[in-house]
Amino acid sequence: MSTLSKAEILRFMTAINLNERLIITPLLDKDEQVKDCAIDVRLGNQFIITQKTSFTEMDVSLQDQIKTRIGQYQRKIVIGFRERFVLHPQQLVLGSTMEYIVFPNCLSGYVIGRSSWGRLGLIIATATGINPGYKGCLTLELENLGEVPIVLYPGIRIAQLILHTVEGEGKYRSRYRFPVGPEFSKAHEDNEIGFWARKRE
């Protein structure tokens, strides 16, 4: 497994066969976005914001409650392009990449923040791995670790993808199917939760 260089990235992006192609669509500015060993991706305009609620906990083992609780705790909003989105200190917000991304089965990668934003206190992802064969917009977990609110604009280059080749071939199987924006958590769908969490009376 090695990190893809710019030349390799471009080679994967121009593969003739769609199944072997790395797709980042739309790629608005190739020269700005394709870097030496990474591709910059942009912030989409849908967000899932969290809000204070009256319930005491989020317990993914409470199958009958959890969907309602997520609905009460998190809400999807849309910000128009060229509009501002203010991320307050310590606030957690789910966003997504503007680009729809398709990984061929021979590539995996991870998404990390751009250092310019990191220096302002912005963290963009904690679950950073991208599996071979992934298709969809990437959900970003945005958090402001700074002391002052940060203004974000949909469309700005906010994160970067680092890509690796996979030895052998991987195939992406996930509960998040072809997302076109940020997705709510589906942690409660893990089958093994039933084993690890004692059933409450």
Partner: peptide, 22 residues
């Protein structure tokens, strides 16, 4: 249509991804 079948949004024809037809 081919893009849709491959689960890709049909926002552009990208036979050459760097010369897309929107």
């Amino acid at each position: 249509c081919d893009r849709i079948a491959n689960r890709i949004p049909p926002n552009a024809v990208e036979i050459d991804p760097f010369m897309p037809v929107i």
